[in-house]
Design a protein around this nucleic acid. Sequence first.
DNA 1: GATAGTTTGACAACATATTGACAATATGGT
DNA 2: ACCATATTGTCAATATGTTGTCAAACTATC
Lengths: 147, 147
Amino acid sequence: MNTPQKGTVFTDIALEVFKLGGLLVSEGDHMGSEYGITSARWKILGALSLAGAPQTVPQIARSMGLTRQAVQRLVDAMSEDELLLFQDNPDHKRAKLISLSALGETVYLQLYEKQAEWAMKCSVGITKTELETTLSVLKRISESIDR
Amino acid sequence: MNTPQKGTVFTDIALEVFKLGGLLVSEGDHMGSEYGITSARWKILGALSLAGAPQTVPQIARSMGLTRQAVQRLVDAMSEDELLLFQDNPDHKRAKLISLSALGETVYLQLYEKQAEWAMKCSVGITKTELETTLSVLKRISESIDR
DNA sequence: GATAGTTTGACAACATATTGACAATATGGT
DNA sequence: ACCATATTGTCAATATGTTGTCAAACTATC
């Protein structure tokens, strides 16, 4: 059952991922604007919150699928804005550990609630099973590309 | 059946879309490198090929979910590289019509075959139904955001 | 026609992200 | 301890994309 039509659907998914990615970025920018947060900064807050422990720049980068250079620039800017804290890493002289400041924590929680409400609204008319299938497929595709 | 867990899955999908988007861009850049094509340029070729008729810059932008300014920059650069042709638009003095050059056509077709083979490989282990559900869900989400 | 609103191209400023390169730091094998 | 390798921070160049603004061109309505 490995029809060439599968490839066609795959291609359409790729195009839709590009489109949806753009929409999500601009929606996130808009939602975060009142807290001075962009989508890119939101990802950093999310990575730290999700990890539940201070992380190094490369760790954040790997968890989000970005380069360490991209993350470093954001982290430096966000530290400037008091959203993040640096602390020395006992295991590594150069790679400092990064954690959420109290402000960063607050902002993230407020964004989380705002986003949760929005997410519920967006998923009206889509079943939980469909959403789970989608997530599973996207993850399997990512894994098959990742190297 | 509108559980808050749906919102959680939705959020995870958003994160995965960001990640997969990055992977697809870099994969596309790599695949196109031997033809001097990047993922962004590929999108322009694809939009023109899909439309089947010459398009204006804003038309391409709308079909791909980009801004006209982003598309304009790519189109100008690709015209420089002989991949695209401008022609006067009888219906609009400023908005020129853009079409694939012979070179653009050739490059696109070669990329298409390369990509089709790759897409088949990536979708091993995913059923056609799963792929179709994914595409459908992504499209419905895009539509619910688009305004 | 005149005129108000929309679309378009052009230009500028900026945010996000990648690649490449370099030196400093860790890590692991001998 | 020594050395090859990998990881990390930093800097630079480039590509992609956004927003905002302006004037020119189009559209619709009166």
